[in-house]
Write a protein that binds this DNA or RNA. Sequence first.
DNA 1: AATTATCTGTGAAAAAAATCACAATATCAA
DNA 2: TTGATATTGTGATTTTTTTCACAGATAATT
Lengths: 220, 220
Amino acid sequence: MNNSQKHTAVSSKTVGRLSRYRRLLRQCREQEDCLFSHRLAELAGVTPAQVRRDIMAVGYSGSPSKGYEIKTLLQHIDNFLDPPIRQPVALVGVGNLGRAILAFFAGRRPKLKIVAAFDKDPHKADRVIVGCRCYPVEQLADIMQNHGITIGIIAVPASAAQETAAALVASGATGILNFAPTPLRVPATVYVEDIDLTTSLDTVAYFARSTREPSLERST
Amino acid sequence: MNNSQKHTAVSSKTVGRLSRYRRLLRQCREQEDCLFSHRLAELAGVTPAQVRRDIMAVGYSGSPSKGYEIKTLLQHIDNFLDPPIRQPVALVGVGNLGRAILAFFAGRRPKLKIVAAFDKDPHKADRVIVGCRCYPVEQLADIMQNHGITIGIIAVPASAAQETAAALVASGATGILNFAPTPLRVPATVYVEDIDLTTSLDTVAYFARSTREPSLERST
DNA sequence: AATTATCTGTGAAAAAAATCACAATATCAA
DNA sequence: TTGATATTGTGATTTTTTTCACAGATAATT
C-alpha cells in the first residue's frame, strides 16, 4: 500500500491544482460529506476529467455512486502535498512585497512556515515583522542551516536576485519561490517557481484588448 | 505591411515570454547593438528555438549574420505588447498585498498604470497611497467608467473575490489579475490570470523535497 | 567567385497536457 | 434478481507547447 512516489512523476501543474482542490475541499467539508468530480471541477474551474486525473496522483479512489469522500480525499491530498515533518521557509527581502508575503502566509500552515526573514538594510534586522524574526543577510547561511531551511522566497530587487539565489542554494535551499523579475541561474537540482508581476500584468493587458474567441476561461 | 494580429492567435505563454524578453533586452541594449537567439535564450533561461518562435509573433526578422537588432526588436515587442493608446488599471483591495502591488507598479509603464485603488474600508478611502488615489468600493463603477478602465487587479480576501470580479466585469473590465486564492467565475470574454501564492509555495515545497531528476530548470 | 561557418525562420516531429470515451462498478427501484 | 442510471478510473486520442533539424541567407575568408 505504498502510495508515495510510484507513478510516472507528477507534473507541477497537477501539484498546483491539488493545492487548489485542497483549499476548496476544506471550504465545503462542512456542508457536504462527499462530492463528485464534476462538482469539484465546477468549484475549481476545470474539467471533471482533469479532476479525476489529478486525484489519481494521490492514490485515492472514489466510489461511482457517492463520488469522493471529502474527508478521506483531503487526507490523501495532505499526505501527498505536505512534508512528512516540517519544511521551514526563509524570506529574503523585507520591502513592501516581502512584508505582504509575510502577512499573507502568517499563521497558516504549521509545517510550511516562514521562520526567518532577511534584509540587507540593517535597520530592518533584529525586528519582528508580522510575527517573523528579521535578520541581516549576513546571517543567512548560519540561520538557514540552524533551522534546516530548504525553501527560499526571493523578494529583493531584480539587481540582487541572482546573488540571493546563489546564497540560498549555497545554504541548502532546494526550492525557490522567486518574485524578482529576473530569471535565476541555479543548479538543475533546485526547483524554481517564478511569480512575475510585470509579465502577468502585461499578459492580462494583452488579452484584455482584442475581444478574443471564447477561449480557455471559466464561464458562468 | 500589416503586422497586427494575423497569425493563428498567440498563446499566453508566448505573450508572457515576450514581456520577459523585453525586460532583458532593455537591460542589455546599452552594451550591445545586436544579439542572437541563443544569447537571448541564455538570458531568459529558455531554448534558442523558443526565442525564435516567440519572436515570429511580433513580425520581426533578424539577420543570420548579426542576429536581432536590439533596438528594432524592442520596438516590435513594444508595438505588439503595448496598448495603442493607454490601458488604465484599477486595483481593488488596499491591504498589505494591495499596497505592495501599488508600490511595485508605481512609476513604470505610463500606458499601463494603476490609476485608481478601491477599498471597502472607508478609512482607506480618499487617501493617496503610493501615488495612487484611493476610493471607497461604492465608487468603483463610476470611476472605472470615467477613466475607461478595462483591467482590474483583485487583492481582496478570498471571501470578497467573486463579488469584486463581478463588479469589475459589470463596470467594463475585460482582463483581471487575480491575487485572491479563489477561482473566479467570469464570462468567457474576460481574461483572468491567477497569481496564487499558496499554490505556488505548495508547489515549490513539493519539488524541493524528492531530489528530482534534472528536469526543466535552467542550469549554470 | 567559391568556400566555410553560422545564423534565422519554419515545417515536421516530439513531448507534455488536457480531453474523450467507455468498461467496470456501485446504488437504487421494482 | 434484474434493469436502469450515474459515476469512477484510465487507455486512447486530441490539443497544445516545445524542440528538432534543415533549407535559405549573410558575411567573412581565400
